[in-house]
Amino acid sequence: QLNLPENTDDWTKEDVNQWLESHKIDQKHREILTEQDVNGAVLKWLKKEHLVDMGITHGPAIQIEELFKELRK
């Protein structure tokens, strides 16, 4: 059970990391997002292209984008 703020805009980069870990996103990809200071407010704007530009491969980038879309519903 994750204990994250209800509003994703309030998520810290550590919260984002924890959420991605719960969805089995590889540590190396989570570390990239942490290094790039991606918090919840930033995550909602990220598209696959942004994630790929940061060095995340296409498969996980699509997965992260789709997971966040599902979360926002």
Rank of each mutant, 00 (worst) to 15 (best):
K13C: 09
D9Q: 11
R30L: 11
W19S: 00
K24C: 12
P60I: 15
G40C: 01
D15P: 00
N17D: 05
T34K: 04
T8I: 13
H29A: 14
L43G: 13
E35H: 08
D26S: 08
W19G: 00
K69Q: 13
L67P: 04
E35L: 06
L33C: 02
I25M: 06
E70W: 04
L2I: 08
S22H: 08
M54S: 06
L4P: 03
L67T: 07
D37S: 14
P5W: 00
L51F: 03
E21V: 04
E70Y: 06
I32D: 02
Q1N: 11
I32P: 01
T8N: 04
D10N: 05
D37C: 14
D15I: 09
E6V: 09
V42F: 14
K47R: 10
L51P: 03
L33M: 13
R30Y: 00
F68M: 09
N39T: 11
A61F: 02
Q36S: 12
A61P: 05
S22E: 05
F68P: 07
Q1V: 06
L67Q: 10
V52R: 10
D9P: 01
G59P: 14
T8K: 08
D37H: 14
L33F: 12
A41T: 13
E35Y: 10
L46V: 07
A61Y: 00
D10Y: 12
E31W: 04
S22T: 07
W45A: 15
E21M: 07
F68T: 08
A61G: 07
W19D: 00
E31C: 07
K13R: 08
E21I: 13
D37A: 14
N3R: 00
T34I: 12
T12W: 00
H29K: 03
L4E: 01
W19F: 09
V38L: 07
E6A: 06
R30K: 02
K13G: 05
N17F: 11
K28H: 12
H23C: 05
G59Q: 15
V16I: 09
L43A: 15
V52K: 13
E35W: 04
I32N: 08
E21W: 04
L43I: 13
E31G: 07
Q1H: 11
L33N: 00
K28T: 11
I32T: 06
V38D: 04
Q1P: 01
E21D: 08
K28S: 10
K28F: 10
G59L: 14
V38S: 02
W45R: 15
H23V: 12
L2H: 10
D15K: 03
Q36D: 08
R30N: 01
G40H: 07
V52S: 13
K24D: 11
I32Q: 05
A61S: 03
N39P: 09
M54E: 04
N3Y: 05
I32R: 08
L51V: 02
